[in-house]
Simulated assay, not measured.
Amino acid sequence: MGFDPRHWSGGRSEQRVTSNVEALLAENDALRREVLRLNSELDRLQRQQRQRFRTETTSHRSWSEPSAQAPPRISSHQVQAWGQSLSQQPGWSVLRQRGLESLIDQLNRSSFPSHLTLEQRLDRLVPGLGTDLRVAVGSKASKQTTAVLAAFAMFGVRASEWLDEDPRRVVEQLRQHQEQFSSKRQGRRTRSDQRRTDRVDFGHPRDPRIAALDVLGLDANASLSEIKQAHRKLVKQHHPDLGGSAEAFRRVNEAYQRLVN
């Protein structure tokens, strides 16, 4: 059954037709074997490419993860250079290491949230920054290294710019903050007496809610939405890390907590 061209002469010699068909069949077999070889080579190359991609992905992941080999954001050499530069500025002799340590503690407690340490606060702003700063400072704190830490507590992530470009201003700001906190400690009893008198207005107790609304710049009929909006605006305005007043930032948060609670 079927037609076999090798058995058809077509008016030509049978030998010539047969030889041509056999050559075509042999060429077809050769092409089939070449296709199989190419497919096998393609499979091998694809396996190599997949393996290389997995290797490169693993290497990239291990590099992007924090490790001891990653370059620190702050080095001990930088901290030493900053401390040396600060010690040469006017007003440096007025600063005291214990006062700077107290200043750092006060600035941390007046920040939000207040329970975070300086290292934790900086790590929240820039991952790894606070940890690198602690390692660069080391375990033996001096007046110079404490002043560098106080600068970061005061200026936040912008402290390195201030230390590099205007160390004179940094010392001046540290001196002013240290004097402010010192005067607050000395006048604590007087301020507490003033707070007690503030609670009395023409013989009537002062409403804590009204006082909190005054801090946020709102009237007595302010809604919860207006309270939240005013709080967000004032927090951005007075945030210490953005150059605002730490004391004002604390008062705004206390007023907000009093109103929402």
Score class of each variant (00 low, 15 high):
residue 219 D to M: 05
residue 52 R to V: 05
residue 114 S to H: 06
residue 211 A to H: 08
residue 201 D to P: 03
residue 128 G to S: 05
residue 90 P to R: 00
residue 34 E to W: 08
residue 208 P to R: 00
residue 163 L to N: 04
residue 239 H to I: 01
residue 78 Q to R: 03
residue 241 D to Q: 14
residue 105 D to R: 15
residue 247 E to G: 07
residue 12 R to K: 04
residue 159 A to T: 14
residue 210 I to N: 07
residue 151 A to Q: 04
residue 89 Q to F: 02
residue 213 L to I: 00
residue 156 G to C: 03
residue 174 L to C: 09
residue 97 Q to G: 10
residue 208 P to K: 01
residue 148 V to N: 02
residue 19 S to Q: 12
residue 201 D to S: 07
residue 236 K to Q: 05
residue 13 S to M: 08
residue 41 E to V: 05
residue 123 D to Q: 02
residue 125 L to Q: 15
residue 40 S to I: 05
residue 163 L to Y: 13
residue 68 A to N: 13
residue 128 G to E: 01
residue 180 Q to D: 14
residue 79 V to D: 02
residue 227 I to K: 06
residue 188 R to A: 07
residue 72 P to R: 03
residue 180 Q to A: 04
residue 249 F to A: 10
residue 81 A to E: 11
residue 12 R to C: 06
residue 52 R to A: 09
residue 65 E to W: 11
residue 55 T to Q: 15
residue 233 K to L: 09
residue 22 E to R: 12
residue 109 R to A: 05
residue 64 S to E: 15
residue 73 R to D: 14
residue 50 R to C: 00
residue 67 S to P: 03
residue 111 S to G: 09
residue 240 P to N: 12
residue 194 Q to G: 04
residue 259 L to Y: 11
residue 84 Q to W: 11
residue 86 L to N: 02
residue 69 Q to R: 07
residue 60 H to I: 13
residue 148 V to P: 01
residue 257 Q to I: 02
residue 109 R to D: 07
residue 260 V to M: 11
residue 223 S to K: 04
residue 91 G to K: 00
residue 70 A to F: 03
residue 202 F to P: 15
residue 240 P to D: 15
residue 211 A to S: 10
residue 151 A to D: 02
residue 259 L to H: 09
residue 37 R to G: 10
residue 16 R to C: 00
residue 214 D to V: 13
residue 68 A to H: 07
residue 153 A to S: 09
residue 59 S to N: 10
residue 54 R to D: 04
residue 115 H to N: 11
residue 20 N to I: 06
residue 257 Q to F: 06
residue 136 A to K: 02
residue 47 R to Q: 07
residue 169 R to S: 06
residue 201 D to M: 05
residue 224 L to V: 10
residue 40 S to N: 14
residue 221 N to W: 10
residue 56 E to A: 10
residue 21 V to K: 00
residue 227 I to S: 02
residue 179 E to D: 13
residue 69 Q to C: 07
residue 118 L to Y: 05
residue 36 L to K: 15
residue 146 T to C: 02
residue 56 E to Q: 14
residue 216 L to G: 01
residue 132 D to E: 04
residue 161 E to V: 12
residue 193 D to I: 07
residue 130 G to Q: 08
residue 242 L to H: 15
residue 135 V to S: 09
residue 165 E to H: 09
residue 85 S to H: 08
residue 232 R to A: 00
residue 203 G to F: 08
residue 131 T to R: 14
residue 52 R to S: 06
residue 38 L to C: 08
residue 115 H to C: 01
residue 205 P to E: 00
residue 224 L to D: 11
residue 247 E to R: 08
residue 249 F to K: 13
residue 92 W to V: 07
residue 134 R to P: 00
residue 148 V to C: 01
residue 241 D to Y: 13
residue 206 R to V: 05
residue 105 D to L: 10
residue 58 T to Y: 09
residue 204 H to R: 14
residue 47 R to I: 08
residue 173 Q to A: 06
residue 246 A to P: 04
residue 213 L to K: 01
residue 77 H to G: 11
residue 15 Q to A: 09
residue 48 Q to T: 12
residue 252 V to N: 03
residue 38 L to W: 09
residue 58 T to V: 12
residue 230 A to D: 02
residue 76 S to N: 01
residue 135 V to P: 12
residue 50 R to F: 06
residue 179 E to L: 12
residue 59 S to K: 07
residue 25 L to A: 10
residue 36 L to M: 11
residue 61 R to F: 02
